[in-house]
Amino acid sequence: MIVLVSGVGSNLQALIDASQDPTFGASIVGVGADRSGIEGLARAERAGIPTFVVELSSFDTRAAWDEALTAACAEHEPDLVVLAGFMKLVGPAFLEAFGGRTVNTHPSLLPSFPGAHGPRDALAHGVKVTGATLFVVDEGLDEGPIIAQVAVPVEDGDTVDSLHERIKVVERRMLTEWVGRLAREGVPR
């Protein structure tokens, strides 16, 4: 699998740790990022995993960036692509190459609260339960087929940060469980 990251890489680290178990069923063949100098890349390098960076600012168009990202991922011949805190939307070239086998996590119970601010939006709407979702990436914004979800209660006094941190804990557990399963059984169609 290829893992794409944009920041600290806590989900990546969970996948690195899980992939050390031979029964997990998957290994990480490369880690890509949309920016350099991030902890996610450093985590991969410490684990001896090849890395690459494809920065949007290096390209004249988003389509050119999408094609370059696709080519960089294709060099590693992944069976599965995991967007683990990757904060860019992939485009048509990427989906043509890796559609149906690219998964992403989101910090809400989709279809509620898509976009970049799931925990904030959940608090603003006063829900009592939110959570994390693993889904197959398609051309929509957090709209692909849902693979798994885990609920997280919203506690009195929660802030965006406290809620998001609790979501991240269950998100990592869900991600590693399901990526191993997807590697062994395939992505549901």
Rank of each mutant, 00 (worst) to 15 (best):
E143K: 15
L15V: 09
R181I: 03
L109V: 09
A122I: 04
V29G: 14
A97S: 15
R166L: 01
G140E: 07
T133D: 02
E177R: 13
P114E: 12
I38Y: 13
G7C: 11
V129C: 01
E39N: 15
I2G: 09
T102S: 15
V150Q: 02
A148I: 08
L15A: 07
E185V: 04
I16Y: 04
H106C: 06
H117G: 07
S19Y: 04
V154Q: 05
V129S: 00
P119M: 01
D142T: 09
M174I: 08
D17Q: 11
R181P: 01
V54H: 05
F94H: 12
V187L: 10
A151S: 07
V82H: 01
D66W: 08
I38K: 11
A68M: 05
V179N: 11
G91I: 14
V127T: 06
P92C: 10
S6M: 03
D142S: 05
G48Y: 14
M87K: 01
P153S: 00
E171K: 04
V170Q: 00
V3C: 02
G48A: 12
T159H: 05
G25K: 10
V5Y: 09
W65M: 04
V154E: 02
N104E: 04
D79K: 13
A93N: 13
H125A: 13
G157C: 02
V82A: 04
E75F: 01
V81D: 07
E39I: 12
A14M: 12
G37H: 12
N104R: 05
A71R: 15
N104H: 04
L95K: 11
L110W: 14
D21W: 09
T23S: 15
S162H: 09
A97P: 08
D66A: 06
I38H: 10
E75M: 07
V129Y: 00
G186H: 06
H76T: 10
V170C: 00
R101N: 05
G40Y: 10
T102L: 13
D79G: 15
W178H: 14
D79I: 01
L4H: 07
T61E: 05
N11Q: 07
V29I: 09
G126N: 01
V154G: 03
G100Y: 14
L110M: 13
L69M: 14
V8S: 15
D121K: 03
M87A: 04
G99E: 13
E139P: 04
G25P: 11
V137R: 08
R166M: 00
I2D: 13
V152T: 03
Q20M: 11
A122L: 03
L41D: 09
T130R: 03
G32H: 02
G180R: 09
V169W: 00
V81C: 06
A93K: 13
G30Q: 10
S108P: 07
H117S: 15
I2V: 14
P111T: 09
A124M: 06
V3K: 02
I38C: 12
P22F: 08
V103S: 09
D138C: 13
A42K: 15
G186Q: 08
L41Q: 07
V54K: 06
R184L: 05
L175H: 02
P50T: 07
E45H: 11
N11P: 03
D156C: 00
P114W: 13
V8C: 08
G131F: 00
R166H: 01
P119E: 00
G144W: 13
E143W: 08
A64R: 07
P78D: 11
I146A: 06
